[in-house]
């Protein structure tokens, strides 16, 4: 495959998934600029990977996996930031003009979400925020699809219990 078609393939993937990857990174790092850098790094890594003639079967899952690796590396370097701090520092959406009450409600829901383990949070956001299929999530987390489905189901039950 020539470089031009590879470029096109990557740009299509970028247009389709850049926001989701950014959100995925931002949700875990709570730093907008850092999340931007990570998003950029993810696509640059994909480009290097493509140039080495490696085939990518599921681009979306591959992007999330790379993003996860970057986040893990970042966590290792800086253990202080996490979803817990996300609330402490005020995880406020800049783009939305939510009212104070709404923000309080969101903060409350986020607080419940954070009571779940990191793995459950990841499964739930991938499944219900990013709309990934259990098969794609299984590919990202490196587990069997059935196992992932069961884990998602249990996480949903736990979140519902917490939210009630």
């Amino acid at each position: 495959m020539k470089d031009n078609s590879l470029e096109m393939k990557l740009l299509v993937a970028y247009d389709a998934h850049a926001d989701a990857i950014f959100r995925h990174c931002y949700f875990k790092t709570c730093e907008r600029e850092l999340a931007q850098d990570m998003t950029q790094d993810v696509f640059l890594k994909v480009w290097s990977y493509m140039q080495q003639k490696h085939s990518i079967l599921n681009m979306r899952a591959f992007l999330y996996r790379l993003a996860d690796n970057l986040v893990i590396d970042w966590y290792r370097k800086r253990k202080s930031q996490s979803l817990d701090i996300l609330l402490d520092e005020g995880f406020e959406p800049v783009e939305t003009d939510s009212k104070i009450e709404e923000q309080a409600e969101i903060a409350h829901s986020l607080a419940k979400l954070r009571e779940l383990g990191a793995d459950d949070q990841k499964l739930l956001t991938l499944r219900f925020v990013e709309d990934l299929s259990p098969g794609e999530i299984a590919e990202i987390v490196g587990q069997n699809e059935n196992t992932v489905s069961v884990r998602i189901h249990r996480a949903v039950t736990r979140l519902r219990d917490l939210l009630q």
Binding site: R23, P93, T96, I106
Partner: peptide, 12 residues
């Protein structure tokens, strides 16, 4: 609302 909020996080 949480879902809307989370989905609103995107690149400008």
């Amino acid at each position: 609302k949480l879902l809307q909020y989370l989905r609103s996080i995107k690149l400008s």
